[in-house]
């Protein structure tokens, strides 16, 4: 069984890797590319900790075969900040103490970034439904929702 060669762009960098056909994009990001920011909470699409954007579309990287990323762009949590500058969402999660253990945080960031790109002025209900696939067991979501709403407000103002 031979490996598959994949050329892709991850957080703006051209990346090539060899993968097995059954490996997921999450496996490859974490085990071959060395980007451990995306987390595996379930491996079955239920928790959202592995969220990435694939060609700009929010997906669970545990539900994408690594081979499918050929020719595509992948954005992970490692690519959200620009150099030393945190993204507004990152800053707002910190300001609102919207993380306790932080294992869900990479997924929450990727998902809420995708939300605000599509809908800069979401209601609380819209934020809650958009993030329903991002499980957080620590916070009860309250501070996360506040942080995302606050980030949206600031990004609209800017």
């Amino acid at each position: 069984m031979s490996k598959i060669h994949v050329s892709t762009s991850i957080n703006g960098d051209a990346v090539e890797y060899l993968c097995e056909p059954e490996e997921t994009l999450l496996d490859v990001l974490r085990n071959r590319v060395g980007l451990t920011g995306a987390k595996e909470g379930c491996g079955s699409g239920d928790c959202g900790a592995c969220s990435v954007a694939l060609d700009g579309r929010l997906v669970c990287s545990c539900l994408v075969l690594a081979a499918e990323a050929e020719g595509k762009t992948v954005s992970t949590v490692e690519g959200i900040a620009e150099g030393e500058n945190l993204h507004v969402l990152q800053q707002k999660l910190l300001d609102h103490a919207a993380l306790q253990c932080g294992i869900c945080t990479p997924g929450i960031l990727i998902a809420s970034k995708a939300l605000l790109e599509k809908n800069p002025d979401p209601t609380e209900t819209e934020v809650r439904y958009w993030l329903a696939g991002n499980l957080c067991r620590c916070t009860g979501y309250d501070k996360i929702i506040r942080a995302v709403m606050d980030a949206a407000a600031e990004m609209r103002g800017a």
Binding site: R30, L35, T36, G37, A38, K39, E40, T76, V77, E78, I80, A81, L86, Q90, L93, L94, D95, A97, L99, G102, I103, T105, P106, L109
Partner: peptide, 18 residues
Amino acid sequence: PRPDGVDKVTGRALFGAD
């Protein structure tokens, strides 16, 4: 802000499987 916060919002923090 918490001291481990930046690591956790940038994906740098190392958890068990990392």
